[in-house]
Design a protein around this nucleic acid. Structure first.
Length: 369
DNA sequence: CGCGTCACGGTTGAT
DNA sequence: TAATCAACCGTGACG
């Protein structure tokens, strides 16, 4: 144990990371590792209260609350897209259409333009400019230039006008992604890890509960993380990192992985165990994932609350969306849990109270610490 | 005591 | 190439 501590600290020295009031390690400004996020959701699904999850995982309750809330809404355990510019709603193409509408009907109201953009399929409800934005465009761009589009037209970048971008990611897509996820996640190797040591309770919990199994099966994890994060997957790191050797580029993951490594080096410290442990366990070996992950769709029950049918998040963009599939997986996961659990009642799954209690016993004790 | 919320200091990545 | 900026992050504290 001490060793562990030592390692942690040592590790910390050259990596960064801060320790919160609960003794958990976090990197300011950066998302918690996916492994931890997943764990939060798993535990919640098992009926463990947020406050206990917070203590067990040593993550602030505000964070637990946020992650669970997001999960309940979107079905994803992933953090939001960090950085970068929000896709512009007023893409050149959109502006051009606005201009056209205005020219066609100088008396047109901004809200009418908005409606037309939707009606014409130029935008969808997710990326249609607000009335005020349209007004601004009319004022600033179109108003002044009466000319047709020199500016944008030519330059039209790549943006896709009608593309939906979802503020969050779009997760739900069962189809495509499993592989991605798999890749990412797949790292068999992890088991070894001495993870256990560091996080006694936690890991125990996982095993005990059999969560990990669950996860693997569902593929949620893998899927989720991997795919979901196509663009950024920042978290992966912890997970990946463990498994991934540096040179391996896994679809984009590599980068993520790397980052992860860098920043969240080892989960080891503090929650460390979690991080490392989880990942390992969590990620299904490729073969498995093949089995489970592939068919995420299957897991997803048809009408899910959070998964609106296609709508909101669903529409996905081209490539990006593909990742969503993972998400779907994730979702599946959620559903699963959800159905069973529902949060408070608890015990649904088969784990029943016993499990819980066990869990509590194991982990919670830590809280005192 | 639990938990939703938000200010804060931080990081990221597209422009 | 560097700077800007808006998005997100988790913590910590308040209610």
């Amino acid at each position: 144990m001490e060793q562990i501590r030592f390692l942690l600290e040592h590790h910390r020295e050259h990596t960064y990371g801060e320790v919160n009031q609960l003794g958990g390690v976090f990197v300011n400004g950066r998302p918690l590792p996916n492994a931890v996020r997943l764990r939060i959701v798993e535990l919640a699904q098992l009926g463990i209260r947020p406050c206990d999850i917070s203590r067990q995982l040593r993550v602030s309750h505000g964070c637990v609350s946020k992650i669970l809330a997001r999960y309940n809404e979107t079905g994803s355990i992933l953090p939001g897209a960090i950085g970068g510019s929000k896709p512009r709603v007023t893409t050149p193409a959109v502006v051009k259409h606005i201009r056209d509408y205005k020219q066609g009907d100088p008396g047109i109201f901004a809200w009418e333009i908005r409606d037309r953009l939707l009606a014409d399929g130029v935008c969808d409800k997710y990326n249609v400019p607000s009335v005020s934005s349209i007004s601004r465009i009319l004022r600033n761009k179109i108003g002044s230039l009466s000319q047709p589009g020199p500016f944008e037209g030519s330059k039209q970048p790549p943006p896709q006008p009608a593309l939906p971008y979802s503020p969050i990611y779009q997760y739900p897509y069962p189809g495509p992604m499993a592989s991605t996820a798999a890749k990412v996640g797949a790292h068999p190797g992890a088991p070894h890890v001495g993870l256990r040591r560091s996080w006694p309770s936690a890991h125990s919990v996982t095993n005990i509960l059999g969560i990990r199994t669950f996860v693997e099966q569902t593929g949620a994890l893998a899927g989720t993380e991997g795919s979901a994060y196509p663009p950024k997957m920042e978290d992966w790191p912890s997970v990946n990192r463990t498994a991934f050797p540096p040179g391996q580029p896994v679809n984009g993951i590599d980068k993520a992985a790397m980052e992860g490594d860098i920043k969240y080096p080892q989960p080891a410290p503090g929650l460390s165990s979690v991080g490392s442990f989880l990942p390992a366990c969590a990620y299904p070996p490729s073969n498995q994932h093949g089995v489970y992950g592939g068919p995420p769709g299957g897991y997803i029950p048809p009408g899910h609350p959070w998964q609106p049918q296609g709508s909101p998040l669903a529409h996905h963009g081209p490539g990006v969306t593909a990742h969503g599939g993972d998400l779907a997986t994730a979702m599946a996961f959620k559903q699963h849990g959800r159905e069973v659990v529902d949060r408070k009642p608890a015990s649904p799954v088969g784990k029943s109270p016993d499990s819980l209690s066990t869990i509590h016993g194991l982990s919670i004790p830590a809280s005192s610490s």
